[in-house]
């Protein structure tokens, strides 16, 4: 018997070798690029492509982001601030074709959101002190907000024609803060597709568009608005943008109350009733505008979602309870130890 064992022992190293080989996974062909633009960190992940083919496209995308950052900055000197100054002087201002297309798209989303996504809100954002790299420390005077509301500028006050713009409201000040990231992400995805790259994530500070897949679907975590870590996750399908607006992104506290940067253009104050709002839509620009508009809509979000053509929505209320549209409920997976209290809200 002992001799028999000895005779067979030679098999053992073979088995070990086979097992160890199985434990060493092949390096995933994942390429990642990271840079800072539009006031956030841009992360691009590509799957299943070699670095040589990816590098020139990634360099072009990085240049695009930096250019948009300089063209559209809402308070540092940019094409947008120059345009705002000219418009506020009541003059006709030339608008480059690229920016005109973006403003037209913004106007369309402003209309479909019933004015809740409002790029003409720049003056109010500046009043609140959110046009600066530092956080504001105090709430503006109620009179100043009332004065802005009395002349409330809207995207409809902007006339766009033949490469020129004019404003009929001297208070109109464009701010593409709720939109620029989405547009930039869409452009990056277009560039990747033009280069034949079909599996990618373009992530602008957590808001992202994912196309294709890796060896499994792209898996996106959604931050918990009131606790560290992830609240829920979504596996993307095909081509989807996931955008979240949250009251924790930029805020200050005064007299024990939180004042965040998502301002309701109807009353001039930070929108209440929502801690975070997540949407899925194929286009990042639409998802970006919709996340803001639905956050502002508060309890009435299902109507705004229907008006904007958004089917998948998750709203987390400040008390931690969650509202889901039926189509979102099919896709979301909660990752917390205790599942939150969930209400399904159908779209009209």
């Amino acid at each position: 018997m002992t001799a028999e064992i000895r005779k067979r022992l030679y098999l053992l190293p073979v088995l070990i070798a086979v097992l160890l080989a199985a434990c060493q996974p092949a390096e995933p062909p994942l390429i990642e690029r990271r840079f800072i633009a539009l006031g956030t960190i841009i992360d691009i992940s590509l799957y299943g492509i070699d670095a040589e083919r990816a590098d020139p496209v990634l360099a072009a995308i990085e240049r695009d982001f930096h250019r948009l950052h300089h063209d559209w900055h809402a308070w540092e000197e940019s094409r947008l601030t120059t345009l705002n100054t000219t418009l506020q002087q009541g003059k006709r201002a030339p608008v480059p074709a690229g920016l005109a297309a973006v403003l037209e798209q913004a106007r369309g989303l402003n209309r479909s959101s019933g004015g809740l996504f409002e790029p003409a809100i720049g003056g109010l954002m500046a009043l609140w002190g959110f046009h600066g790299n530092d956080l504001p420390g105090k709430v503006p005077e109620a009179d100043a907000i009332a004065a802005w509301l009395a002349e409330r500028p809207r995207m409809n006050d902007l006339e766009l024609e033949g490469g020129h713009a004019r404003s009929t409201n001297p208070r109109l000040q464009l701010d593409l803060g709720a939109f620029a990231k989405g547009v930039a992400v869409d452009r990056a995805i277009d560039r990747l597709r033009d280069a034949g790259i079909g599996n990618a994530i373009v992530n602008a500070g957590g808001d992202l568009r994912a196309i294709g897949a890796r060896e499994r679907p792209w898996r996106i975590g959604i931050r918990h608005p009131r606790a560290p870590g992830v609240l829920a996750s979504i596996e993307t399908q095909g081509d989807e943008s996931i955008f979240t607006s949250g009251d924790y992104e930029r805020y200050f506290e005064a007299e024990g109350k939180r004042y965040h940067h998502i301002i309701d253009p109807r009353n001039g104050y930070p929108a209440r009733g929502t801690a975070s709002l997540t949407v899925i839509h194929s286009e990042a620009a639409v998802a970006d505008a919709a996340a803001t508009a639905l956050f502002v809509a508060g309890d009435a979000w299902p109507q705004t979602a229907a008006d904007m053509g958004i089917e998948r929505v998750m709203r987390v209320r400040p008390d931690g309870t969650v509202e889901l549209s039926p189509a979102m409920a099919e896709r979301i997976r909660f990752e917390t130890d205790i599942e939150p209290e969930v209400t399904l809200r159908g779209l009209p």
Binding site: A210, W218, R219
Partner: peptide, 17 residues
């Protein structure tokens, strides 16, 4: 300066912040 946690199993490809 930015800090990025790398999960060994890379549970999420990105976090919606």
């Amino acid at each position: 300066v930015s800090l990025h946690v790398q999960g060994r199993d890379r549970r999420y490809d990105a976090i919606n912040l």
